[in-house]
Amino acid sequence: MATGKKKEHWRWEESNWHNPEIDWVKARIITAGVDVGSVSSQAVIMCDGKLFAYSNMRTGSNSPDSALNAINWAMEETGLTLDDLHYTVGTGYGRINVPFANRAVTEIACHARSGGFMYGPTVRTILDIGGQDSKVIHCDSKGKVTSFIMNDKCAAGTGRGMEVFADLLDIPIGEVGTRSLDVEEEPEPVSSTCVVFAKTEAVGLLHAGWSKERVLAAYCSSMAQRVLSLLNRIGIKKDLVITGGIAKNIGIVSRIEDKLGITALKPRYDTQIAGAVGAALFARALIEKDN
């Protein structure tokens, strides 16, 4: 009997990067931020407050190993070692399990801190759609949290929910957003209360003859609605930015913008590294405070 190997469409692309124009040997302060999330882990290295290197990869079953893998991948081909880092802050779900971190800071405070660096000083609302939760954070001009709310009770409105749909529909996760926009008319959203119910509903719609694009549009719309209710709970202050893996999904971002009637600021960097950038910025502030 022949068996076909199923493709894993939920697998998003891991990446690392470093800036060859920065010579870390000349840097006065080298800080790192490591964000160990439920689905992905990122490490960011900054030299005197400038982004020098980062990595973005899937979190494994062991938080300390994930943190080490992420920082090692960020330092790859740079000549840096852990001993060269002056201060490291851990953040995310696994923040207390980053063995080489000097301090742990919540991802809420880190996202607020990174807003100005990644998007500019006008950021006041950050919508972070992570792998297994979504958060809305209000911050002031200095990147200090003024209010926050979090949904971590279920996968609806999170990146994991989108991975489930990519697999169900056999569509690579990177194409989900664009293909969801390939519909003539926006369909009614599927259930926004639960990913399992939404998936059941989607299977029914496929059997009823809906195209994959239309089903995706219904799910993206439901997801946008879900995070919108979170946004409405504490309100929206301009400017709005969207971080996390879902910020790369044009199908969700454009639907959120349409429903809100405002445009989110466009990122200068990978939206998944926002938490780790904030952690590295915290590290710099903490080392300067200690000195």
């Binding site: 949290v145 209010s147 979090m150 209710s229 709970r233």
Partner: peptide, 16 residues
Amino acid sequence: MIANYGYKDGSGEFFI
């Protein structure tokens, strides 16, 4: 800072 702890589910919104 206003910290909101809780959740929203099918039965309503429950935040402190």
